[in-house]
């Protein structure tokens, strides 16, 4: 696409904003017209106003953000790193890939309480939970991307006596980038879920922890605000990943996920 904004891009962004505003509008009408009690469903304006209540919003948002971003960063490093090891050492791949597939079947949310037993509760523990839930898809898609090289292309560079290093640097690694990003996009949602699970099971701060706190007083507006803030942190991370993908991966090579 050329410089500046095309009509198509402007229309797409307008549509995104309009759809979101429409949801808020429906929410507003439902609460006002339906006369829903405040403790069941707070209106949009009440939800927004809960930000001025005395809850430590900023601190909790920072804690949750740190957990999500920290766990996610670890997941990317470990997921991509392990996939590279798998591709460099066939024995490691043969031994560990079946294990990875089994591990992927574990409902990782159920590991939360165990991890808390092992590491005590706190930000670090929630980072580990977010990491453990989100790194497998990155590992699996990256490993697949590194494996997926056209055999004829390998023949072509073999006639030129390309070294393994050259094949890796010039063909395998750049070829796997779209897959890495496709795994990374899936992992964002999982990292958010991981941090929330950790906070809900046992913790002393964070937005999901706050939800548990205000549930006791039936402050529905604050609960909804917390959910919205968690979502916004996830959206921010997702947009960062999308932006990076745009920088690094040529349009045609991108793997569409969501």
């Amino acid at each position: 696409m050329g410089p500046g904004l095309s009509a198509q891009t402007i229309w797409r962004w307008t549509a995104i904003v309009l759809v979101h505003l429409a949801v808020v509008l429906i929410w507003y009408i439902a609460v006002e017209v339906g006369e829903v009690p405040k403790f069941v469903l707070a209106s949009p304006q009440e939800t927004l106003l809960s930000l001025f209540d005395t809850y430590p919003w900023f601190h909790n948002t920072m804690v949750t953000t740190a957990e999500i971003f920290g766990g996610y960063f670890l997941a990317v490093v470990v997921g991509v790193g392990l996939a590279l090891l798998f591709s460099w050492f066939r024995t490691v791949d043969t031994l560990l890939m079946p294990l990875v597939v089994s591990l992927n079947m574990i409902p990782k949310v159920a590991l939360g309480p165990l991890i808390i037993v092992w590491f005590d509760y706190g930000i670090q523990t929630n980072i580990i939970i977010a990491f453990s839930i989100s790194f497998l898809p990155i590992l699996i898609t990256t490993a697949r991307g590194l494996r997926e090289v056209e055999p004829d292309l390998i023949d072509l560079v073999r006639t030129l006596r390309a070294t393994r290093r050259q094949i890796f640097v010039k063909i395998q690694l750049p070829g796997s980038l779209p897959y890495i990003f496709s795994g990374m996009k899936v992992a964002v949602v999982l990292a958010v879920a991981g941090a929330v699970v950790g906070e809900i099971i046992a913790s002393d701060s964070g937005l999901a922890y706050l939800i548990g706190q205000v549930q006791v007083t039936l402050d529905t507006a604050a609960m909804m605000m917390a959910v919205i803030l968690i979502t916004l942190v996830g959206v921010a991370l997702y947009l960062i990943v999308l932006g990076l993908e745009r920088l690094v991966v040529v349009r045609d090579a991108r793997v569409e996920t969501v």
Binding site: L153, D155, K170
Partner: peptide, 30 residues
């Protein structure tokens, strides 16, 4: 045998992330 053979297959097998010029240069780089 390394320098004196060029190959063309049924599929173009161009690297999607490289521009035409960079694709053409691949054997020279290797």
């Amino acid at each position: 045998p390394a320098r004196d053979v060029g190959m063309v297959f049924q599929q173009p097998l161009l690297l999607k992330w490289r521009r035409v010029l960079e694709n053409v240069l691949l054997p020279a780089e290797i």
